[in-house]
Amino acid sequence: MEYFIQQLVNGITLGSIYGLIAIGYTMVYGIIGMINFAHGDIFMIGAFVALISFIIFGLTGVALPIILLLVLLIAMIFTACYGWTVEKLAYKPLRGSFRLAPLISALGMSIVLQNYVQVAQGARVKPMQPLFSGGLEFFKNSEFIVTVSYLQIFIVVLTIILMGIFTYLITKTDLGRAQRACEQDRTMTALLGINVDRTISITFIIGSSLASVAGMMFVLYYGVIDFYIGFLAGIKAFTAAVLGGIGSLPGAMLGGLLIGLIETMWSGYVSIEYKDVAAFSVLIVVLIFFPTGFLGKPDIEKV
């Protein structure tokens, strides 16, 4: 039982990271109907920016909460610029051409970003000193002590806060309404005087900054990164988005949590080597019974 709770905590932490990346996939899919395969690499860029800024600020000896806040802001801003640029360079010129064109362009962009980081930062694994130590311990009298580290608490709380802000943005503001309108009918949205290109750009900016937060969490949680982490994390987050129902924002978060839990539970109880196989197998099974994912809804339109 204690072991189960421990895996649950680990799974939720991992799921938060996947969920934040998955939102980027699902938002972009929702608005331009394209899978942004470079999104995993945007997450990787976020992780690198976070690592570099941690090292720089670590030397200054500022207090930890301030470092975290600064790194968070810097990672979000830098990574948002990358996301915005990728959209302008690789996807916008292809808008209106055949459906596969931006998809191929996205795969190309993914390779470009990986190689760029490999050349600029080197191919070796980059380690980082742990910034957080300690945690809360539960069930001290039993055989297995459940530890919830402060880092895990930080990750989950930050995710919840970001989700709150993000949900407010999408459901209550002009920007969010414009975004949901673009998802349904871009021409009509333009006919109401809304700048559709700008709305799409902002979607990429939001998705990229959420991915950069996930990148920062990844650096802190695993302590090592390399230029290739975006691939597997990206595929997992994409799986999460599909599992939850691509295009659905709560679905992305739910899917992220599920993938995180499946992975940790499988590693804990069955075998750690096959954790990825488990995650993808669940996806296949779910898609057989819920073709649109858990929270994705098929379009019912009254004509």
């Binding site: 414009a178 949901r180 349904q184 009918d185 109401l192 005087g193 809304i194």
Partner: peptide, 24 residues
Amino acid sequence: CQVPEGRRIFSRLTVEENLRLGAY
């Protein structure tokens, strides 16, 4: 401002949200 053929209401948004979009 145009009201296009087939109305093109945002079917998943509420009536009020549709109107708010018009006021953008």
